[in-house]
Every structure is written in structure tokens, then in C-alpha cells.
Design a protein around this nucleic acid. Sequence first.
DNA 1: TATTAACATGTAATTAATTACATGTTTTTG
DNA 2: CAAAAACATGTAATTAATTACATGTTAATA
Lengths: 175, 175
Amino acid sequence: MAQKNRLQFIILGLLNIESKTGYDLTKAFDSDIGEFWTANHSQIYPLLKKMEKDQLITHHEEQAGPKLVKKSYDITTAGKAAFQEWLKEPSEADNSHDEFILKLYFIDSKNSPLLPEMINEQKQARAEKLNHLKQQLKDKFPTEKEKQQQNGHYNVLKHAIQRETDYLKWLDEIN
Amino acid sequence: MAQKNRLQFIILGLLNIESKTGYDLTKAFDSDIGEFWTANHSQIYPLLKKMEKDQLITHHEEQAGPKLVKKSYDITTAGKAAFQEWLKEPSEADNSHDEFILKLYFIDSKNSPLLPEMINEQKQARAEKLNHLKQQLKDKFPTEKEKQQQNGHYNVLKHAIQRETDYLKWLDEIN
DNA sequence: TATTAACATGTAATTAATTACATGTTTTTG
DNA sequence: CAAAAACATGTAATTAATTACATGTTAATA
């Protein structure tokens, strides 16, 4: 997909919180942000170079061990401005590329022998996802304090939980 | 995105219904399928060539005017098998790339001056989408007959409507 | 009948994203 | 202390997708 380089803004958003290495950024997509966006380190490292060339970020080096030197990236004033600009722009809702929905579209008959198995598999996958999200909510937002401090993250998690819950409800209906 | 070539299976699914030209396929993404998947003609024509080379489809030419010759594509036995195979495989749920959610994640404070405008804009966009979907449902499924004949399409539309409805509900909650 | 819109089919250039290749350091654990 | 896991940083090859370029036909309409 040749998209609107949203990854760049995610990186700016993360660096806006605090200075991070390419590895730190990569890790972020394994946890928090990974819940709703994906990125590989092989995409992140080259993009960091490009963003630095574009003067949205800079980097400084840190001696992290006897031999290891870490590159830590910092957002620039221009980067902060670009990030704020992006926040203000209208958002596009990329139609979610849901493979199950796609398949379902092509199954015209209510009596297709494929349907029960497909629906069950999907129910299980979605239920697992829902459990995982609920666990995340427990782990990351144990008290009101966290909800206040990271209200965006909280809203996003709540949204994901609602989405999965509603998806499961719909799966029950078409059964 | 270097994905799992789902477009190929959409094309197979559409050709499995009936023979179509590249233009017909392109049009399908402006209406029905466009509700949940996108593709440009510049992606479709080269893919048709590749799929023909892979013997998933063939084509025949039709004299459509004094000068115009249309290329109509047909699914092969191998194509039908590949399509059925795909239907049976487990489905992956690509985390929907929703830009609004992404932005929200980075807004930590409930009192951010950006929030009200962002939420309103999103509410309006989603409400419009919902209206459009409801109209589609009316237009394409006026009676029980259509629901029986195209149950897959019906389910997918119902799902989209539920999704937008729930999304709007959630937007009200975070307001 | 001239113009415009829709039909119809491609290619080229660029950007985005995945998978695989490649290498080295540091910390943990058995 | 040896091995494994996690940390850390890149590049290369390939695939997917968008935007722009390019050309011609047919039907509708003014």
C-alpha cells in the first residue's frame, strides 16, 4: 500500500513523548501500538534516516556498554510542528481489510458447508483477541490514575474492546 | 503493504460469478466491494496478466463495437480450485488502519483543545458513511428474495452498518 | 454534429511494506 | 562459563498499491 506515510507521524508521536532508539520504536509496535498498527524494524530504520534528512528528527549517540553505542532519536521543533499539523488534519478511515468479511461476501448461500467452520474459527480468534485486550486493560490501567494520565491510550483500548465485543455479537447473529 | 495478494482472490471470486472485463472488475470496486476493499485499474490490469500466466484465468475477445474489442476474463478450473482453497484457509484480521484512532492514541489529556473538533469531524464522517450504507441496504436488498440470493453480501453490509453504528456510539461515549 | 462523459486498456514512476539476509553486543540463565 | 535469548542496527529483494502518464472508442447530450 502506498499510503500517506502515517508511520512517520507515529514515530513523531512516540518521539514527542521521549527520545527513543530505532529498537525502542520497533518494540512499541510489539506492545501498545501493535494493537492497532504494525511496522517492522526494516521499515523503521530507513525511515528514521529519511526523517532526519528532512530535519523532523535528530539523533545523539549514547555509550551503552563497553562496545555498544546506541543511536537515540529526538524530535525537532519542525518535527513537533509537523506532528501537531497532522493531528489537526481530517482523518481518513481506511476501510479495514478484514479477510473474513471478504470471504463471507462470496458465500451466497446460508447453507454453504463452509460457513459453520469459518464462523467458528473466526469466533475463536476474535474471542482470543478480546481476552488479550481485556488483559491489556487490566495491566495498563489498573487504577483511575493511569486512565487520567494516558487517556488517549485508554480510549483506544476501550474502543478495540468494544469493536471485538460487537464483532462477536455479529458473528453470533449470522450463525 | 506487501500483503497476501488478497486482490487475486477477490478477482477470482468475481469471475467465479461470471466472466468480466478488467473494466468491469474495476467498477466492482466503485460499488459493492468498494464498501470494504479498494483497488485501482492500474493494479487490476497487470494482475490479470499475471493470473492468466499462472493459469488461474483465461480470456476471450468480444467484438463490442465497430472498432472496440473487449477482453473478457474467465476463471479456469485451477482458478476455481485456488479460490475454494482460499475460502477454507484461516482468515487473518488485518488490524484496521484507522487514522482517527491513531491520533487519539497520542492525545493524553481529556481536555486537549483538539479533541472536540476531532471528534465532531469524525462523527460527521461516520454518520455520512452510515447513511450511505443504509441506503445501499435499501437499494440492494429491497425484499427477502435478494437477501436469500446474496446472503454473503447482505451479511457484509449488515456488518458494516453495525460497525458504523457502534463506532458512533463509542464516539458519543468519549465525548 | 460537436462536445463531453463514460467506456476501455494499458504502462511508468514512486512509495509502502514484508520477508529475508547480515552482523555484532549484552544480559540472562542453566 | 557456555549457550541462549534479547538487545541493537542495518541492507537487499520482492511485492503491493497509489498516482500519474498515455491512448483510443462509444454513447449520451446539448
